[in-house]
Design a protein around this nucleic acid. Sequence first.
DNA 1: CCGTGTGAATGAGTTCACAGCC
DNA 2: GGCTGTGAACTCATTCACACGG
Lengths: 208, 208
Amino acid sequence: MENQIPDVVIQRLPMYARALARLAQQKVYVVSSFYLGEQLGITPAQIRKDLSYFGRFGRQGTGYNIEYLLGRLRQILGLDREWGMALVGMGQLGHAIVRYPGFTNQGFRIVAIFDHDPRKIGKEVAGLTTMDVTELSSIVKEKGIKIGIVAVPSAQAQGVVDTLVRCGIKAILCYAPASVQVPDGVKVRSIDPLLALQSMTFYLRDDT
Amino acid sequence: MENQIPDVVIQRLPMYARALARLAQQKVYVVSSFYLGEQLGITPAQIRKDLSYFGRFGRQGTGYNIEYLLGRLRQILGLDREWGMALVGMGQLGHAIVRYPGFTNQGFRIVAIFDHDPRKIGKEVAGLTTMDVTELSSIVKEKGIKIGIVAVPSAQAQGVVDTLVRCGIKAILCYAPASVQVPDGVKVRSIDPLLALQSMTFYLRDDT
DNA sequence: CCGTGTGAATGAGTTCACAGCC
DNA sequence: GGCTGTGAACTCATTCACACGG
């Protein structure tokens, strides 16, 4: 019964994995927490502490073996398998997301797409046929989908999220500019460029 | 000005503003920290404390006047003006971003687009002509651009960020899946759906 | 010596709880 | 009675600093 690991720590692990993968590609075999921290703008102590939640991966006086640490991180994060995802909302944004090539080669694959607009249902996009959201539940079960992507207008976002949750989805990536509530045990991460901009302007407002 | 306000607080203000705008649209005139918190999944105490960094906006026994509070928040965040933005990187992603309609009606407008590929320079997209990144500095000055958007492959992200910083840009929205370093006084927010997914799978990995 | 792993110390952020006002 | 504003208490996260192993 390991005690709860902070979510901030979990959110940093993929950054470590990414940096390690980049180093591995450059044929670097060993890295210290100092060097890794420099790459990521994170203190070495932070990195060592984070990793210590999961075990001892380093070697004193040397650092971390990149291939080994990367492998362990991928295992910890569950990146050593394929994840099927359901995308809901086939507007402009939905189209851009299905076509986005950045997911697939990383083990994340959109395997079903949904909309509730009859004019969109049946349309083929990127080799997938748009289905009615009413079929979500059965398709999620059939295809073993564990992740949902929400790309509907914000007014419908909460409803779609609720539906996904009812289907047993425990991880949701939300592109709608809306704050959605989920029960305990379900994770939502939001992609919200507008919020990001609106919070940065605070720091600009007194500039020339 | 006042004592340093935590960045987490600043990041929540736009959420408040968004929720308030929605309520205003529904012809609600007053809201309590309790109700607002419920909408956003934030505790009432948090909201009151956050707002207290900036002044006293509420009325005891009543709550907050929505129009007034929204106005003040917009002022505090600098949302009461137009912000011109420069987008660098006119690949797939860059195209999707210029066409994204979610920025413009919120006071954020892409006013110049750049690439360094000669085949792309000169191409018109969404009414703008793609320019060479070498012209970045002069255009930024000429158009009073204060915000940069990075949509280049991750290998080039740091270089582009450095260039933007050299042009005096103090706020950068980065779509590249890379961690970029900036000097003090410059803010970067990253849009990174892959990191979001990779951190959620941690919680899924033991599921059926 | 160099760099990890980790309890202990510090610091940051959140929640409590209540005085004060409507 | 209801709800804000806010110091104080507390919780959570980061950093320190050092023992230990290579």
